[in-house]
C-alpha cells in the first residue's frame, strides 16, 4: 500500500526527521560521547570544540550527550501522553457518537468546557501540587489534550453509524461492541492517526515548556526543556546552552508536524 511513489514530500521529510530523531534517542547510550550526568568541574561552561561538539554546561556536563538522552525523555513523554489522550478521546467520542441523544449532549458540553479552559494554568497547578516528575507530566498532558480526538471520533461515528454496512451488521445481530470495534473504528483510524502524530509534536512542545519552568523533568535528568533553563541562567556568558537544545526541539516538532500534515494529505484523496 505504501510505495515510494505514492508518498508525498511532506511525509518523506517528516518521516525522515522522525526516524532519525527516534534512532538517535534509541541509540543514545551507545553513541553519546560522555556520561550525560557526569559532573566535571574542570570543564565548566566550555564553548563548542572538538572535544565537546555542543559545549559543556555550568556543571561541566557534555551538552551533546545530554541532548541525546533528552531526546528519550521528550519522545517518551510525547508518546505516552498522546497514548493516554487518544484512549480517552476514543472512549468519549465513541460513547457520544454511538449512543447519541442526551449522553452525547452531556459529553460534548463537557468537551467544550475543557476546550475553553486555559489548560496551561490547570497543568501548571496540578503538576506543582503533585510534585513534578516525568510520569505526572505524561498523565497531565494526556488528561488535558483528548478533546480533539473525542470530537473527531464522534463526528466519524455519527456519519458511520447509519451507513448500510453498519446497519447490515446490526441487522445480523452484531453486538454494540462489535459494531464499534469491527465496523466503525477501523474506518476512523486515518484521522485518529493524523491527530496523534500532530499530538506528539504538541506534547513535546508542552513538555519542554513545563521543564523550562522547572515543573517538568527534574535535574540531573536531562530534558531539552530543563537544559534551556540552564541556558537562561547563563545567558550572559554561554549562548550554546540556549541554542542547541532548542534547535533539537524545533527539528523534532517540525518533523512530527510535517509527517502529520503529509499523512493528512495522503489519506485525503480529494486533495
Amino acid at each position: 500500500m505504501i510505495s515510494a511513489g505514492s508518498v508525498n514530500p511532506l511525509m518523506r521529510w517528516g518521516g525522515g526527521i522522525v526516524a532519525v530523531v527516534a534512532l538517535l534517542a534509541l541509540l543514545a547510550p551507545w553513541i553519546a560521547p560522555y556520561d550525560p550526568v557526569a559532573i566535571d568541574v574542570r570543564q565548566m561552561l566550555q564553548p563548542p570544540s572538538w572535544h565537546h561538539w555542543c559545549g559543556t554546561d555550568n556543571l561541566g556536563r557534555d551538552v551533546l550527550s545530554r541532548m541525546l538522552f533528552g531526546a528519550r525523555v521528550s519522545l517518551a513523554v510525547g508518546f505516552v501522553a498522546v497514548g493516554i489522550s487518544v484512549v480517552i478521546g476514543i472512549a468519549f467520542g465513541v460513547v457520544a457518537g454511538f449512543v447519541g441523544g442526551r449522553v452525547d449532549a452531556v459529553i460534548m458540553r463537557f468537551t467544550d468546557m475543557v476546550l475553553c479552559f486555559p489548560t496551561f494554568f490547570l497543568i501548571l497547578a496540578v503538576i506543582a501540587f503533585l510534585e513534578p516528575s516525568i510520569w505526572n507530566i505524561m498523565i497531565v498532558i494526556g488528561l488535558t489534550s483528548w478533546m480533539g480526538v473525542a470530537r473527531l471520533v464522534r463526528a466519524e461515528l455519527l456519519s458511520l453509524r447509519h451507513r448500510e454496512f453498519v446497519l447490515a451488521a446490526e441487522a445480523l445481530g452484531a453486538s454494540s461492541w462489535r459494531l464499534v470495534s469491527r465496523y466503525c473504528l477501523p474506518n476512523a483510524i486515518g484521522p485518529i492517526l493524523v491527530s496523534s502524530v500532530l499530538g506528539v509534536a504538541g506534547a513535546v512542545l508542552l513538555e519542554s515548556g513545563l521543564s523550562f519552568l522547572g515543573l517538568g523533568v527534574q535535574p540531573p535528568d536531562p530534558s531539552w526543556g530543563n537544559m534551556l533553563t540552564a541556558g537562561k541562567d547563563n545567558i550572559q556568558i554561554a549562548w550554546w546552552l540556549s541554542l542547541y537544545p532548542g534547535l533539537a526541539i524545533l527539528i523534532t516538532v517540525l518533523g512530527y508536524n510535517l509527517l502529520g500534515e503529509g499523512l493528512r494529505d495522503w489519506l485525503d484523496p480529494r486533495q
Binding site: A201, L205, S208, G209, F212, L228, G231, K232, I235, S242, L243, P245, G246, I249, L250, I251, V253, L254, N257, L258
Partner: peptide
Amino acid sequence: VFIGFAIPSFWLGLL
C-alpha cells in the same frame, strides 16, 4: 509558517 508552528516560543525568546 511551519517553523513558526514548531518553534518553542521561550527558546526564540532566549535567542
